[in-house]
């Protein structure tokens, strides 16, 4: 893999992705083998907005490779609060660490940050933009459960604002997956995403109801429809209610359908689905650690 920084899943080719997933599988298989590989390495954590889960997952990954993290802490306690630019902050902090992980509320922030630093930087979410490690762990989970051959994926929920969805849909074009998009009319894929998928040669099949495509799916990826996307509570309840699934929904699905969700969920997947063999969302969350270990290892030159 020849990428200095990981900004977007769009920059990753199929072979890049497979390299990360293969290495992640090796690491999940035998974590002891890499327990000291990056002893002495420091990963700088720049979280300009809170995301405890992503931060914990990166911290666990770095520590399981023998390294450690240095954390900027919360924005409230940093120089950012005093009005320091992002460009200045990253130039200072790159001196403290061997690589950086950054999450920031503005789209394009990670790309801009890479223009000011020499150490490798991983985008852990830039506003409504990209979150490539989420995509990689999603792909890892898909490969583990359904494989990439002749794959049909349904993506359901908030397709307009859901960045994990955009990034995953784009990455799936690398694997020639059949993709179905299920959402209310008002939360369909945005123009820029359609453009990309179209450029990547994908046919976009859109539906407002799950029933029509459910029987074909190998993977159903569910995302949350947020209250704030709707003008009022009753409209939200009505719309969101149509995109909730439970154990009974699985009657209309393949026996080996894999159900995924980036978590946290609210009520879009009922708890009774957790006990079925379809539920893979907790496994998906756990996969974040080996996938981030693999990515860090590749970026820090672990193969040399």
């Amino acid at each position: 893999m020849r990428h200095e920084h990981i900004i977007s899943a769009k920059q990753l080719s199929r072979s890049d992705i497979e390299e990360v997933l293969d290495r992640a599988a090796e690491m999940a298989e035998d974590p002891q083998a890499v327990a000291d590989r990056h002893a002495g390495t420091l990963l700088g954590m720049l979280f300009f907005e809170p995301s405890t889960r992503t931060k914990m997952s990166f911290t666990a990954a770095m520590k399981r490779l023998g390294g450690d993290v240095v954390d900027m802490g919360s924005v409230e306690s940093s120089s950012v609060k005093k009005g320091e630019s992002l460009a200045d902050t990253v130039r200072v902090v790159e001196g403290y660490a061997d690589a950086l992980v950054m999450r920031h509320p503005s789209e394009g922030s990670a790309k801009m940050a890479t223009e000011f630093v020499d150490v490798p930087l991983i985008n852990a979410g830039d506003g409504a933009g990209q979150h490539p490690t989420q995509t990689l762990l999603d792909l890892y989970t898909i490969r583990e459960n359904a494989g990439f051959d002749d794959l049909t994926v349904g993506i359901m929920g908030d397709l307009k604002y859901g960045r994990t969805v955009h990034s995953l849909a784009h990455a799936l074009t690398e694997f020639d997956a059949n993709q179905h998009f299920v959402s209310p009319e008002s939360l369909k894929l945005p123009r820029s995403v359609r453009y990309d998928l179209h450029e990547a040669g994908a046919t976009i099949k859109e539906h407002t109801e799950l029933d029509v495509v459910l029987p074909e799916l190998d993977v159903l990826y569910v995302t949350r429809i947020q209250r704030e996307r709707f003008p009022d509570e009753s409209e939200y309840r009505e719309v969101a209610g149509e995109y909730q699934i439970d154990a009974e929904t699985m009657d209309g699905a393949k026996d080996d359908l894999t159900v995924m969700h980036p978590l946290p969920r609210v009520d879009e997947i009922a708890y009774d689905l957790d006990d079925t063999t379809h539920a893979k969302y907790f496994q998906q969350a756990h996969n974040g650690v080996p996938v981030r270990m693999a990515l860090l290892d590749l970026m820090l030159g672990g193969d040399q």
């Binding site: 630019s85 992002l86 460009a87 920031h104 509320p105 503005s106 789209e107 394009g108 922030s109 790309k111 801009m112 223009e115 830039d126 506003g127 409504a128």
Partner: peptide, 13 residues
């Protein structure tokens, strides 16, 4: 036109 884009913030870009 995206007001949340980093290029619209006070940054040297």
């Amino acid at each position: 036109p995206n007001h949340n884009c980093i290029t619209t913030a006070q940054e040297p870009v």
